[in-house]
Structures are given as C-alpha cells and as structure tokens.
Amino acid sequence: MSDSSVTVLTQMTARLLLAPILVISVAVLVNGYASVGDGFSAGVIASLGLLLQYVSFGRERSDRLLRLRLVPAAAFAGLLGALAVALVPLLRGEPILTHWPPPGSDAIYVGSLELITAVAFDVTVYVLVVGCVVGFARAIARAGEGVAR
C-alpha cells in the first residue's frame, strides 16, 4: 500500500469522504432504534471510512494525521462497556442485562434518540467494532511492512 500505486485523485476523494462517512455511521447508530441500523453496522461503516484512509495514504501517514494508534484500545473499552451494561443489573439484584427504563415506563427522548441502556449497549458495540476492525487492519499493515523490509 505504497503511495506510488495510489493516485492523487483517490487520495483527495478519500480525504473528502472521511467526515461524511463518520457522520453517516453515527446517524445509522442513532437511527437504530427508530428504523434500519444498529451499533454493529454503524461501527463497520465508520471503520470502513478509516480503512479507506489506510488504503489511500498508507499506514504511517494515516496514523500520524488521525491519531489512530489508540483506536484498537477502544475495542476493549467497548467490551468493558458492554459488560458493564450487562452486569450492573446483577448488583441491583436483577437478572443479567436488564435494561432501564423497565418496560411500560417512559423514556427520556433527545430528539428522536432515546436515552435507554439498550442504546448505550449499541454504542459500546459500535466502539468495539470500530476498534476491532481498525486493529485488524493495523496489525496486517504493520506485519506487511515487516515482511516487505
């Protein structure tokens, strides 16, 4: 994935597409409870945007410009978050993964987004998927550099 095989046109397009892709991914995430979309797809869309940067610019430049070194750690942050959402009800004496607010009562709405723990679960899945896919790509890219050398 060296610069010589990627044209300037691709790089410009990739640079322009990054922000919209991230916005769309967040939109898909937020839209999950109202219509099509969920944390997993949103996460994959966001990570595809980041992978596009890797392909177009090469690993080192993307890492430097976008500070992507810590993104794989987000995978484990997401996992911890998901486990927290699942296990906190245990501390309150309820079965695992009991969501709040309980069925039947009203939820707090911010626009069309509901503030419920299920949405928080989706967000943790989103973070985890982004971290994992970017982590895979980084591992492969770094290994590739080692092989090429």
Binding site: A34, A75, A82, P101, F121, D122, V125
Partner: peptide, 28 residues
C-alpha cells in the same frame, strides 16, 4: 415496550442481548 420501533435492533440489544455480548467478546 422495549421503547423500540425497529424490532431487529431491539432483538440485538435487548431480547437477545446476551448473544450479542458473547459475539462481541469473540470479536475482541
């Protein structure tokens, strides 16, 4: 009741949430 209009998302995050937890653990 689960405050969701999209059933599939509700299944992933709520009804079958434990499956999702297992799957994301596998990915990690």
């Amino acid at each position: 009741d689960a405050h969701a209009k999209d059933v599939v998302t509700a299944i992933i995050a709520d009804f079958r949430g434990l499956d999702t937890l297992g799957e994301v653990t596998v990915v990690a």
